[in-house]
């Protein structure tokens, strides 16, 4: 019974995937949609394979920026949340700026950052960090603030020092909220990275999507979009894997 369920849950998305792309393929063929307007899925997949050598360096650049920015954002967001929730003074001093960073559309900062840091990887990674650490920080703050009083009292009744309290009680209590933030940050990181590449430089998948669109090479443009999706999926998979490894308990 269990095996059957597993099989179904594996097959269902595969079947629906095939169905959607078949419909797309048929619709394009029957209606004779021009390739520059909407290419057929088979053409896109073909391009993903055939033009792969051309895409590969850009895939690498995008993936590197997303991953690096994301990996820097996690400790930054977590550290800041820990400080903000532990020290009211730090909270009062920093919270306006964090709100400022969250509410400012980052796209408006890109020209400024370009001016200061150029088109290179540093500027891109910085942008990704700025955009994604804030959601980690906000969710981690929620987690830290929602630690049940009775758990705090347990640690207080033993006179636990701040570090032991943090490591043994506060951090694991907030873990699932932190992961919510990390998941959102991964999405923010990918979105931001592509936005930056649209605007700056001629490397990265974002820049290629723009380039191919301008030449009406819609098939290649779509192939790049699919590679962006794959990067997103890889990030999602990595986070799910980490979450399963780290949060092994039930509340």
């Amino acid at each position: 019974m269990k095996k059957k369920n597993k099989l179904i849950s594996f097959l269902a998305p595969v079947v629906s995937f095939l169905l959607i792309f078949s419909l797309w393929e048929i619709a394009c063929t029957v209606n004779e949609v021009p390739t520059w307007f909407l290419p057929k899925p088979t053409e896109i997949f073909r391009s993903m394979v055939v033009d792969f050598p051309e895409f590969w360096p850009h895939i690498l650049v995008t993936f590197e920026v997303v991953l690096m920015g994301f990996l820097i954002a996690i400790p930054v967001g977590l550290l800041l949340a820990s400080l903000v929730t532990s020290f009211p003074l730090v909270n009062a001093a920093l919270s306006p700026y964090i709100t400022f960073l969250v509410t400012t559309p980052l796209i408006s900062l890109i020209p400024l950052l370009m001016l200061m840091m150029g088109f290179g990887l540093n500027m891109r990674i910085t942008t990704v960090v700025i955009q994604s650490f804030a959601v980690i920080n906000m969710n981690a703050c929620t987690g830290f603030n929602n630690v049940p009083t009775i758990r705090r009292e347990l640690m207080q009744s033993m006179g636990a020092d701040p570090i032991k309290t943090y490591l043994k009680m506060t951090l694991p209590s907030a873990a699932s909220d932190i992961f919510t933030g990390v998941r959102l940050a991964a999405i923010f990181a990918t979105t931001t990275c592509i936005s930056v590449e649209y605007n700056a430089g001629n490397t990265g998948l974002g820049s290629q999507i723009i380039k191919y669109s301008q030449y009406l090479k819609t098939t290649q443009s779509f192939a790049c979009i699919f590679y962006v999706t794959i990067i997103g999926l890889i990030m999602y998979g990595l986070i799910s894997f980490a979450q399963k490894k780290i949060i092994s308990w039930k509340e």
């Binding site: 758990r151 009292e153 640690m155 009680m169």
Partner: peptide, 27 residues
């Protein structure tokens, strides 16, 4: 002193033994 709460107040990420040994680690 030892404090016993109204709820069991176990920390779900530790095993039963680790929970019981928690005061030893803290003290």
């Amino acid at each position: 002193m030892g404090f016993i709460f109204q709820q069991p107040n176990m920390l779900p990420w530790f095993t039963v033994r680790e929970n019981i040994a928690l005061p030893l680690r803290v003290f």
